[in-house]
């Protein structure tokens, strides 16, 4: 799809969400629910004794997985799959830069995910919840975080060029 058209579509989805719920979209919050639920299942004693998890449980009285963002991200999986089927892009695939080994790509993806996950908690939101939704409601925090994300990625691009391009 034409990227501008896709952008307008995404913008309308975001606008509708704000109109209905009074809040924007998100993504990393759902992963946080997964992380907290995992702790609860694996180490229940630790879960009970840690102030952070107890605060989280108090904010989610219906259960750690019953949060708006968990349902939203389930929707993302469905919507992306539908789109993938329509555009014939579904299938197991490992995408990487030229000449990069599979193990390197997987390792980098895990490390990058860990950094993004950690940063999204510290920065109170990721590219969806903080940057994109922040831009829609003109939030200073969202726009500052957005500039920091893209600024840092540009600044580090040269150092990690071997992961992505021939040079």
């Amino acid at each position: 799809m034409n990227p501008y058209l896709a952008g307008v579509l995404l913008g309308f989805v975001l606008l509708t969400t704000i109109y209905i719920t009074g809040r924007g979209l998100g993504a990393s919050g759902a992963m946080k629910s997964v992380a907290v639920t995992a702790v609860k299942a694996v180490a229940p004693e630790h879960y009970e004794s840690s102030a952070f998890y107890q605060d989280y449980a108090a904010e989610h009285p219906d259960g750690t997985m019953k949060s708006w963002l968990v349902f939203e991200v389930l929707g993302v999986l469905i919507g992306a799959f539908i789109s993938g089927v329509l555009s014939d892009r579904v299938g197991f695939k490992l995408e990487k830069g030229p000449g990069v080994r599979n193990a390197t790509r997987i390792g980098a993806a895990v490390l990058g995910g860990a950094l993004f996950g950690f940063g999204s908690q510290l920065g109170r939101g990721c590219t969806s919840g903080s940057a994109l939704s922040g831009m829609a409601v003109m939030s200073l925090g969202g726009i500052v975080t957005m500039l920091a994300i893209f600024g840092s990625a540009y600044a580090l691009a040269w150092f990690f060029r071997k992961l992505w391009i021939n040079s």
Binding site: L111, G119, I149, G151, S152, A153, A155, F160
Partner: peptide
């Protein structure tokens, strides 16, 4: 947080 996310973006 944004700076760390940027690093995660370019690596991951």
């Amino acid at each position: 947080g944004g700076l760390i996310m940027g690093a995660g973006f370019i690596i991951g």
